[in-house]
Design a protein around this nucleic acid. Structure first.
Length: 590
RNA sequence: GGGCACGUAGCUCAGUCUGGAUAGAGCGUCGGACUUCUAAUCCGACGGCCGUGGGUUCAAAUCCCAUCGUGCUCGCCA
């Protein structure tokens, strides 16, 4: 309802300003401070003061006189407070919000845009177990995909598999060359943990072995690269043995978050179907193409990129970026929009890609990047190759274990006599443990760097997932007590409810907070910033807790009880869906 | 050195894109609230030259310039 309210305020202001012959390009619409009883306000009077030859408060008063609010059902009145014009909401605004929130299990979901969006995220090289340094990508990426889905788009999630680069060639050579007896025990009994030992051994060999031995190894690696480039079927099969196994293991880690994909798009596909060659051919014809030092390159100075982009090596093989161009043209052909989630270390590459796509005649407004900063350890970077870093599996295991200790330590002091079963304890530990890790990462601005610290990542107190999950459990407790079936969506028919009954400040604040939820989804999707949803969940939780403290639900009388129950049902929908948009589970009990 | 990002309370962060009402949370510290719909909660206190310096503006944490600090980047790697 907030979105409609905002539209009505903008429309009313535009009309009033027009009739005063004032400019309407900047309406100065903003959210007032908390202690002001208005949903929105305008500071436009400041800007008009000079033109009108009057002080801002006088201009504000003049503007209010000119406002015609009859047409706008959600705006109650416009009043001045000094230079500000404050817009308060009608009971219909509260009633419609309550109705939508309480009855719609999908509350917060925006109308279909009719657009298909492909979200590519993670796309980590299939070289070993997913470590925490990489984990920001699937967590952010999955949340971006979920938020875009809530915003009404038809979303697909893709993992672009690097199965054609030098790293997998090294990996394949190492896997075929070294014997298991030379390797340490794997950390876990799973393919990615098993095979990464060969990858590390291979890299170590290339760094430390005698020059002659390294040269020999490089020749074999080169042969694999050439085989891939030439479309040699046997080479693909050799590489695939390694890639598919490792990827299978990585998928299991990612699924725990959960981050699942609709499609794993292999890079080799664009070598085999000739698309990469086609891109090379077209780039060579470009006026920006140069042939220097035996390699074909692009001069992108027209795009303010000083570094030349090599698209064909001197040995005639293509590069990752070349294939990625073909990959993106394929995306453009099949989806309305493409979103890629990338670490900041790939930023320059993304800019080059964008320029090259434009040069090839694509409409690059279809492509957006969500860039995030890395997660580092206090002692430095995490690296699969070097084997430094914390594995995502270890983090999740530890978090679930600590969550389980929490659940168990609280069992004795529980007031609610719902007798948690062993299954419940298991479920709560998993939901809270994984939710806490996920929430901790998704709640921060992507551009800010994160230093991973165990105790901070596993803090279950306020401003964490459990804090928000807890109010969901509280809602469920109240609704269950009142006989509302959560499994059936926990919706309530509020047809006869009088929103006037919700007259305490805490009730009204909660309804207003619910009203904003769809607008929060919209903002998060527009900016590809799911963290605003996390910020919202905290505000919602605080507002709900104030309501919970001041307004007894089950012991309230008659219609008042029904109205408050509807408010709880609405709050539950909002918090459940907001958490869902972040990819965090909402426990029915804790 | 060039480019990009980040710098807000002792610590971790919202707010910055789109300038506007006394700059908000949490953690920590101190004090208080469970015979009450779940205390993983709530209430109160303490805590801020919004890195620094200039500029634009009626108004700057927010925009511009400079500067310092930190991170990323500048491969025929990905």
């Amino acid at each position: 309802m907030f979105r409609q309210f905002r539209t009505q305020v903008e429309s009313a202001l535009t009309d009033a300003l027009s009739s005063l012959d004032a400019p309407t390009d900047d309406l100065g619409v903003e959210e007032p401070p908390e202690d002001v009883d208005a949903v929105l306000a305008s500071s436009v009077a400041f800007r008009l003061a000079g033109e009108f030859g009057a002080a801002p408060p006088q201009v504000a008063a003049q503007l209010v006189d000119e406002l015609d609010l009859d047409e706008h059902e959600y705006i109650d009145e416009a009043t001045t407070q000094g230079p500000y014009v404050n817009f308060t909401a009608t009971d219909a605004y509260l009633a419609d919000t309550l109705d939508a929130a309480a009855t719609d299990e999908e509350f917060g979901r925006l109308p279909d845009t009719g657009k298909s969006v492909v979200v590519e995220h993670t796309s980590a090289n299939p070289t070993g177990p997913v470590h925490v340094g990489r984990a920001r990508n699937p967590i952010l990426g999955d949340a971006v995909a979920r938020v875009l889905d809530y915003a009404g788009n038809d979303v697909e999630r893709h993992y672009y598999v690097n199965d054609a680069g030098r790293q997998v060639a090294v990996f394949t050579w190492a896997y075929e060359t070294f014997d298991e007896s030379e390797l340490p025990e794997p950390d876990r009994d799973r393919a990615d943990y098993d095979l990464v030992r060969y990858y590390r051994k291979g890299n170590q060999f290339l760094e430390e072995a005698d020059a002659a031995d390294v040269e020999e190894a490089e020749a074999e690696i080169e042969a694999i690269m050439q085989g891939l480039e030439e479309g040699n079927e046997e080479t693909y099969e050799r590489v695939e043995v390694v890639v598919d196994q490792v990827l299978g293991g990585m998928r299991q880690s990612l699924a725990r978050l959960p981050a699942v994909f609709d499609e794993f798009v292999k890079e080799s596909r664009f070598m085999r179907n000739g698309d990469a060659d086609d891109v090379v051919k077209r780039l060579k014809e470009s006026e920006h193409a140069v042939y220097e030092e035996d390699a074909w390159q692009l001069d992108l100075t027209d795009w303010d990129i000083e570094k030349k982009m090599v698209f064909l090596r001197s040995d005639g093989t293509t590069l990752y970026t070349t294939r990625d161009l073909a990959h993106h043209e394929w995306k453009f052909a099949n989806y309305d929009e493409a979103v890629t989630v990338l670490g900041e270390d790939h930023k320059l590459q993304a800019e080059q890609l964008n320029a090259a796509l434009e040069l090839l005649g694509n409409d690059t407004s279809q492509l957006r990047h969500a860039i995030y900063s890395y997660v580092n350890l206090p002692e430095g970077k995490m690296s699969t190759r070097a084997g430094t870093g914390v594995d995502l599996d270890d983090l999740l295991d530890e978090s679930v274990a600590r969550a389980r200790e929490e659940v168990e330590s609280r069992l004795d002091s529980r007031i609610r006599d719902d007798d948690l079963t062993e299954e419940d304890i298991e479920r709560i530990a998993r939901q809270v443990g994984i939710g806490a890790v996920r929430y901790d990462i998704v709640s921060k601005q992507p551009t800010k760097a994160i230093t991973f610290e165990w105790d901070r990542a596993l803090d279950f107190e306020a401003q964490s997932a459990p804090y928000v999950q807890y109010i969901h459990a509280r809602c469920c407790g109240i609704l269950a007590e009142a006989g509302v079936d959560i499994a059936e969506g926990g919706s309530l028919d509020v047809g006869t409810i009088d929103a006037d009954l919700l007259d305490t400040p805490e009730e009204r604040a909660l309804v207003r907070t619910l009203a904003r939820f769809p607008a929060v989804i919209e903002e998060a999707a527009d900016d590809l910033e799911p963290h605003v949803v996390a910020t919202y969940t905290r505000e919602l939780a605080e507002t709900f807790n104030a309501f919970y403290r001041e307004c007894p639900v089950l012991t309230a009388e008659g219609e008042h009880r029904a109205a408050r129950l509807a408010l709880v049902a609405g709050a539950r929908h909002a918090v459940a869906n907001a958490l869902d948009a972040l990819g965090v589970e909402a426990p029915t009990s804790m």
